[in-house]
Design a binder for these strands. Structure first.
Length: 423
RNA sequence: GGAGAAGUGGCAGAGUGGUCGAUCGCGGCGGUCUUGAAAACCGUUGACCUCACGGUCCGGGGGUUCGAAUCCCUCCUUCUCCGCCA
């Protein structure tokens, strides 16, 4: 959620910058400012009525103490009239506040100046690429063929148990999952992130805090009986740990990481992109989250990008980094870098990580603040990134490292798996 | 699931209808003293809206009253005991 103060001070700049995200705020911004003005006017009126009521109530008390019952009863009548009109104003005030809030949450976060204009993924800017695209041998297969050939991931069995997009990992496949999770968590811990094991069901407040609610609720699985949501990413419970918290400056930065399964309904995505591990309803992911002072959050974003790069480098996967264009960015992000690995048999770049700075967009929603000395509390910046999402990493590892004799695993993961190859 | 108790400021804990936004303590911050520190002493110390005046907030919501942290209803949460259980 954008801060009202920003809208008040630079309404035109807000409109211009949102245009980079292809969001037309030309009507919404003035509407919000009008509601804001109304709110303050009504609140002033309401305040002064309450003030009169408070004064009257005190006078009534004094009169009773002095035994002047008749005068007191007189004032009571006056007070009753005041109460009626202040109630009306109060209703009006809540009404305005509600619609103000309703309109305000419609505004996406402002893109940082670095964000390129553009509408589609083609307009994303490739800022870095490294690693060699492997030349595969003649009989090379896509990962969904390899997984069934070696019996390590069973998609059909998942359909039997649950439905499409819920694969069953078996034997070395299951072991590889566990190995990657441990490896990623160890690396995050080395980098100073505190490991968290959060709930994977969250309530509405949490969903709202990170920005999934109210708009993207159709992308989350919902447990109706208890009104809980299955998390689409660990970002939701982990960032919400600090909801309604005022930190001391010395406590910044807060660095947390977590492994969780993630659940996404992926409503509306069909076709060949969903083949095999490419798009699942349940998948494993290690997430890194930082809460930072606004002054250097962009340096921290670079640091997180470097962390993810190091992981992919260690796994010897060819990858590239994209700076997302305005049209491809998420609602709440100010700047996002996507990581894609090249999966050689599919001959496709697959997104395996997304690292974003949300600036104060999330912290404003969840009242996540810090205090410098005895100053007023100030909104912190929140950042997060996948480090990493497993399925497409597994897909690329299988496809890129396949030989006629089997899949050869990269060195760094072997001490975690306990085996060197899958055959 | 059954029975009972409780939810007040960073923590601890008073307050049960009328200057209570809230006593006191601890912690925090500032100061005096000290070579420095500790101790001691003095002062200060919640959040939100508002340019300000002023207003709001004692788990959430609703109600009674001229007036509620204090009374009533309801929901939520926590604790204790019993039952069940990974």
């Amino acid at each position: 959620m954008l801060q009202l103060s920003v809208l008040r001070e630079n309404p035109n700049e807000v409109i211009e910058r949102l245009a980079v995200k292809n969001f037309d705020a030309a009507e919404l911004v003035p509407l919000i400012l009008k509601l804001d003005e109304d709110r303050r006017a009504v609140q002033n009126e309401h305040d002064s009525l309450l003030n009169q009521q408070n004064t009257l109530a005190k006078e009534v008390g004094d009169l009773y103490k002095k035994g002047m019952k008749a005068e007191a009863d007189d004032l009571k009548n006056k007070s009753a009239a005041l109460k009626l009109s202040s109630q009306t104003l109060n209703d009006k005030l809540s009404q305005i506040e509600e619609s103000l809030h309703q309109e305000l949450v419609k505004l996406p976060n402002l893109p940082s100046p670095k964000v390129p204009r553009g509408k589609t993924p083609e307009d994303n800017e490739v800022v870095h690429q490294e690693g060699n695209i492997p030349a595969l041998y003649d009989g090379a297969q896509a990962h969904w063929e390899l997984t069934s050939k070696y019996d390590i991931i069973d998609f059909e069995l998942g359909v039997k148990l649950t439905g499409a997009g819920f694969p069953v990992y078996k034997g070395k496949g299951a072991r590889l999952q566990r190995a990657l999770i441990n490896y990623f968590l160890d690396k995050a811990t080395e980098a100073g992130y505190k490991e968290i094991q959060p709930p994977i069901l969250v309530n509405r407040d949490s969903g709202y805090g990170t920005g999934q609610l109210p708009d993207k609720d159709s992308q989350m699985y919902h447990v109706g009986l208890d009104d809980y949501y299955l998390i689409p990413t660990a970002e939701v419970p982990v960032t919400n740990i600090l909801r309604d918290v005022i930190l001391k400056t010395e406590e910044l930065p807060v660095k947390m990481c977590a492994y969780t399964p993630c659940f996404r309904r992926e409503a509306g995505s069909y076709g060949k992109d969903v083949r095999g591990l490419n798009r699942l309803h349940q998948f494993d992911k290690v997430e890194i989250v930082q809460v930072h002072h606004p002054d250097n959050s962009y340096e921290v974003l670079d640091e997180m990008v470097a962390h993810v790069s190091a992981l992919l480098r260690a796994l010897q996967l060819p990858f590239r980094i994209l700076r997302l264009c305005g049209g491809d960015m998420s609602f709440g992000s100010a700047l996002t870098y996507d990581f894609e690995v090249y999966s050689a048999a599919q001959k496709k770049w697959l997104e395996v990580s997304s690292v974003s700075n949300f600036e104060t967009f999330q912290s404003n929603r969840m009242k996540l603040r810090f205090r410098q000395g005895t100053d007023k509390p100030q909104l912190a910046h929140t950042l997060n990134g996948s480090a990493l999402a497993l399925p497409r990493i597994v897909a690329a590892l299988l496809e890129n490292n396949q030989t006629a004799e089997g899949v050869i695993l990269p060195d760094v993961i072997r001490s975690y798996t306990g085996f060197d190859s899958i055959s």
